[in-house]
Amino acid sequence: MTERSVQPKLSRRAALVGGLALIVARPARATPEAMQDAIRDFIGSAPVRAGRVKMDIPPLVENGNSVPLAITVESPMTEGDFVKAIAVFNEKNPQPNIGVFHLGPRSGRAFVSTRIRLGDSQNITAIAQMSDGSFWSGSVELIVTLPACAEN
């Protein structure tokens, strides 16, 4: 039951059907391959190891327009050993990038939290770049349900 704009009946109907069937016409989507390309842009040719990155996201997303996401990375965050950046990627939004967050030893903890948009159920990956040049990653698979009726 949502409404975004006043539209002629026909398109409202089409959108309602779409909403219930969990299909909404959206522009070209990022693909798992596009996500891999975006990740390669961030890491270069370095290897990525799974681990040390933890993502907190509600298991069932109430509304894909605003999904709370918190990321923590295991790191002492000292001058000699810290997280330089955390980059977040998705598979199915129109673009594979979500955000890149730059931290340093003054951060105290390797933590960042934001709210993101997700057009569909998909895999989200976060990659942490450490001060020693290594990369670590974590992923989460998300289920996004559409609102009862999408109207527009």
């Binding site: 999904v67 673009q95 939290s113 934001t114 709210r115 993101i116 948009r117």
Partner: peptide, 13 residues
């Protein structure tokens, strides 16, 4: 990027 929700919320330490 566009995947950040409207009225962006950003928290850090």
């Amino acid at each position: 990027f566009p995947a950040i929700a409207a009225n962006p919320f950003i928290a850090f330490t």
